[in-house]
Nucleic acid binder design. Structure first.
Lengths: 244, 244
DNA sequence: CCAGATTTGTTCGTATGTATC
DNA sequence: CGATACATACGAACAAATCTG
């Protein structure tokens, strides 16, 4: 019981100690203090540094590994994951081709606007009326063919100065640039028929069947950070859903 | 080092001890030795019974909680989950109505046949050519309206005597009856247009857009146990996919 | 409502095994 | 082979939730 002095940096909260440790380490990753790919201090030293027991540090790292923030390898060390790696940045792309590979495509045109959140945006992004959003409209191409029309909205308060950045607006890129870590997402898939404007954007016949994807991505703390509507064909391709 | 004698029941494997403990306890649930809803022995006594430390028992129970086999509540105890409860048995039902509630419906007609697995069944269920399967064909109704046409296949070897059982063929029910615990599932969603036979079964116009669901459910050990194709409308409803 | 018993949750610390370099 | 790092296993003490009398 000698070193029970609640190290000044910790113990201010009612949350379990291992959660506080996780939060502290996650902050280091989000702010860029710990760079992707680099090995972090070993468990025992880290535990000493934060003034917790090795078991508590281990539990915190267990959570972070589960959240895909770090990778641990026996005999080597613990490494910060690169959130812009293919595996992590394509984590929310569930449309797959006949061979099972993800259909990513290239963004060919982007419009960005800013305005007051409408009713739908307020609901999906949990905003209050009057809050502002940035809106993206873009088309994804595969083999020079238009494949998916996307309209995405993000809360303006989370991405200050975004309109000057000339970004293509993928949430993964935005998150990295603004030091935000992404958590889970929910997507609603329904079927509709192509309206005139969608038919034109996707070069299909008006009235042909179209998949409508309605997706909300959350930050690691559970706050919604992107609402996206997408329209695409699913004739050759399929959407892969995994249930655990 | 006194009690390092590898209790006769355990330690025969190369797997970590906590995994062996998990397997042993899981077996008790699968065989019905431990009934759903009943509290199991407390951690300390269980640890003594299996001859492991409390920490190891705790880790095994952590895994089982994560696998939805048990629920633990501080101050009360650890309880075996009822795999036929709504929450668990509807875990693979992702079609939702406008209000977000799951669309379950009632099974109105079932046909069951038995035969040699075709190429597709061999691939999805990881069977060898010549292996046998049971096949179900059923229609789900909502408000007296046909809603979903289902064709499911299961390996005959896993469900001996199934043809005499007059079962409606839901995999959750089969699993419970045969002492099998289910793990994860993958579903491929694509869009097609109603063929003549599907249009008839679902009472829609031939050629109208239809969602095609291609799903494989695995047992807790990762072995595929059901391949299911389903056709349904997604006009009013939507399919909910969660990404972690 | 309180006091005590029971059970899981959290935190601590140590020792040994195993993979990597 | 030795040093290092994570993985496994053990054990103990206290906190927090729950139930009972």
């Amino acid at each position: 019981m000698a070193s029970n002095s609640k190290p000044a940096t910790m113990g201010l909260s009612t949350k379990p100690l291992y959660v506080q440790v996780r939060d502290a380490l996650t902050e280091r990753i989000a702010t860029g203090a710990w760079k992707p790919g680099v090995a972090i201090l070993n468990e025992a030293d880290l535990a000493r540094e934060l003034g917790v027991s090795p078991g508590t540090m281990r539990k915190a790292l267990d959570i972070m590994e589960h959240e895909r923030l770090v990778t641990r390898r026996q005999g080597r060390g613990t490494f910060v994951n690169d959130q812009s790696s293919d595996e992590l940045s394509q984590r929310f792309i569930n449309v797959r081709g006949p061979d099972g590979e993800r259909i990513v495509g290239d963004v060919k045109s982007v419009e960005i606007t800013e305005g007051v959140a409408n009713e739908m945006e307020c609901m999906r992004l949990r905003l209050r009326t009057g809050d502002r959003v940035y809106r993206f409209r873009r088309v994804r191409f595969v083999d020079e063919q238009p494949f998916m029309l996307v309209e995405a909205s993000v809360p303006a308060s989370l991405f200050p100065g975004l309109e000057k950045m000339n970004d293509e607006g993928r949430i993964v890129g935005l998150a990295k640039r603004f030091g935000m870590l992404l958590g889970k997402a929910e997507e609603r898939i329904s079927i509709s028929t192509a309206s005139a404007s969608i038919a034109e954007a996707l070069s299909v016949a008006p009235g042909s069947p179209i998949a409508v994807l309605d997706r909300v991505v959350e930050a690691i703390d559970g706050q919604p950070v992107e609402w996206r509507m997408a329209w695409c064909q699913l004739a050759e391709n399929y959407y892969l859903a995994v249930m655990n």
